[in-house]
Every structure is written in C-alpha cells, then in structure tokens.
Amino acid sequence: MSDSERRVERGGPYVGSPIIMATVRVVMPFVFTFGLFVMFHGADSSGGGFQGGVIVGTVVLMLGIAFGIDTTREWIGPRLPVALVGTGVLAFLFTGIGSVLLGAGFLEYAVYGELGIPHASKYGIEFVELAIGVIVAGIVTGLFFAIAAGANGGESA
C-alpha cells in the first residue's frame, strides 16, 4: 500500500506499466502481420481491406496506449497518416480509371488480362483491397491522434 500512497502524495506523472509495454512489443509485429494477411486475402476469405486496415491501425493504438500518445505521435510523424491515405486513394483511382482507359467500365479488372497479367480479376481485387486497407489504416491512425490532440489543446497531428 505504501507505494500507492507515495504516488498519490507525490502526484507524480503516470508512468506506463513495463508489463503492458513488453506485451505490446511482443504482440505488435504479429498483429501487424495479421492485419496485412487479412488485407491480402480479401478476395477469397473473410476479411478484406477495411478489416485489415483497422487491424493495422490497432497496432498504432496499442503503441499509443502503452507508450504514451505524444511519444507515439513523435515516432509516427505528422505526415505518415496523410501520406498513407493519399497513396491509397491514388492507387484506387489509378486501378479504377486504368480499366476505363482500356475501354472497360470503372474498376472492371478483367480488362487488365489483355495486358498479359494472369488472374487479372483476382489480382485487381487484391490490389484495390490493399489500397482500401492502406486508406483505412491511415484514417484510423490519423483520427486517433486527432481525437487525442483535441483533448489537450488543439494541436492536430
């Protein structure tokens, strides 16, 4: 009990628990891999871009909770979420409009087969799922930091 009294009296800063930090360190790469796995397997199993993106975003949330939001924000940097969303949107548009340029409808992947890409439909869907996943991951991360920043004084991420 003495420890808690000391902490209350001292009013010292809340220090993250090393146990939570170590667990997050260990679990994180596997969660990240799992998120990417779900993203890549959107076409033929449960999952897809949205789910995978959220799981990848979760990695950042875990870091933020275990190590402190400011620390994580410094590590991620302000540009990364924005860059992710931008890249994802560009990739999506590129695939969508690409099929239009080849004379088919928007996002009609089968037409890429004419360029000699095997399983054009499948890979097309994978690619778009991946783009969506990247967008979602970027948005989840960005929103998390934006909400956290809103509470302590309006500096946005």
Partner: peptide, 24 residues
C-alpha cells in the same frame, strides 16, 4: 481479431481511467 480487441479494450479503458485529465 476479437481476442485482439478484447486486449485493446482492457488496456485502453484502464489507461483512460487513470488519466482522467484528458480523453486519452
């Protein structure tokens, strides 16, 4: 995924409770 969310929920609510000053 559910197991992951379960873990995230526990640690985030615990942290949120202690730091009542801000949202997070």
């Amino acid at each position: 995924v559910y197991a992951l969310l379960n873990f995230l929920l526990s640690i985030s609510i615990s942290k949120f409770q202690v730091e009542r000053g801000g949202v997070l």
